[in-house]
Design a binder for these strands. Sequence first.
DNA 1: GTCTATATGCGGATAGAC
DNA 2: GTCTATCCGCATATAGAC
Lengths: 186, 186
Amino acid sequence: MPYPAKTSPEAILETALELLEQEGQANLSMRNLAQQLDLKAPSLYRYYADKKALEVAMVGYATDLLRQQIESGIEGLVPRKALKKAAEIYLEFTRAHPNLYALTMNASRFPYHPSGTGKALWNVLLAVVGRVTKNPDDTAATVALWAFLHGFANLEHSGMFGPSGPKGGFEVGLSALLEGFKTRAT
Amino acid sequence: MPYPAKTSPEAILETALELLEQEGQANLSMRNLAQQLDLKAPSLYRYYADKKALEVAMVGYATDLLRQQIESGIEGLVPRKALKKAAEIYLEFTRAHPNLYALTMNASRFPYHPSGTGKALWNVLLAVVGRVTKNPDDTAATVALWAFLHGFANLEHSGMFGPSGPKGGFEVGLSALLEGFKTRAT
DNA sequence: GTCTATATGCGGATAGAC
DNA sequence: GTCTATCCGCATATAGAC
């Protein structure tokens, strides 16, 4: 008869995030998570209906955090600088939380849900790009930037660049896209 | 006492490739694979030491096939056209074999091995980009292109573009990169 | 609210008979 | 070369006692 409760939805979420980053997605099991919280696995189901519900919460946290970091990081910058800064923050985020980012983007398992935190993040990127291309709803250009950022982060995290590394590929690609987007504005 | 053998390394590999595309990576188990071949799982270990060895063979097949398709597809094209064509073939490949492509690029599990088929594929991309940037060893630009292609393919396959789709983002990004690469040549 | 015990299912891989 | 039988481990999730 433990009072008060030994845990909470927030504590579970926090611990899950830590466990994900430290042990990787493959080791994020309800058993391991419970162990970290000095609990047994069945107790977790009082707070999250199933594992997917917990993952949805984790993805929501991730997209919200990234959006916040970008929004505050680009404040007061002119369009071009803002886009570059947003790209850098995005990449830094994928480096700081590689497994959380992978979970977030591996979300083909979650049904598309337009009114989520992912939509808010998308809108921030859309606005940043729009200020450069002079088109506030430039889906195509935003998709292009997103693809580049995501691809670079993913290849880097997967170790696909090998021991020699990307050799300035990020800066070159970002500059080229910016150049192309400027042309697009005229 | 079955003579001749009921299977072969080649037949196993082929069936594994089919099974991967049809059922997805999660369902590619030694048991399922054996069933497709009218075998029992233990028999497979006579031909591949373990599952990882089989996956290595699959990745080798994928990178080799993609390299071949790009090489023959760009034959006789001028540099700019060749790069565009190579990018299109790359994307088409990821659409034709999404799960095989994912396995190939998910290869952080495989140790980096410079003398594999992946290196040959990289060299083709390097040459294609080099003809545009007038630098036969332009690692940075090749990384940028690769990141864009991989990112776009990955986001598309994950359903991250949502119901509205990428809205021309591929063409816009590719043109922007090409534009930037041309500038790089001067 | 947490626990033990369990249902149920999956996977990779091996030993040893035939 | 293929098989049966098995070991061993992992997982999500539930029932019901406390």
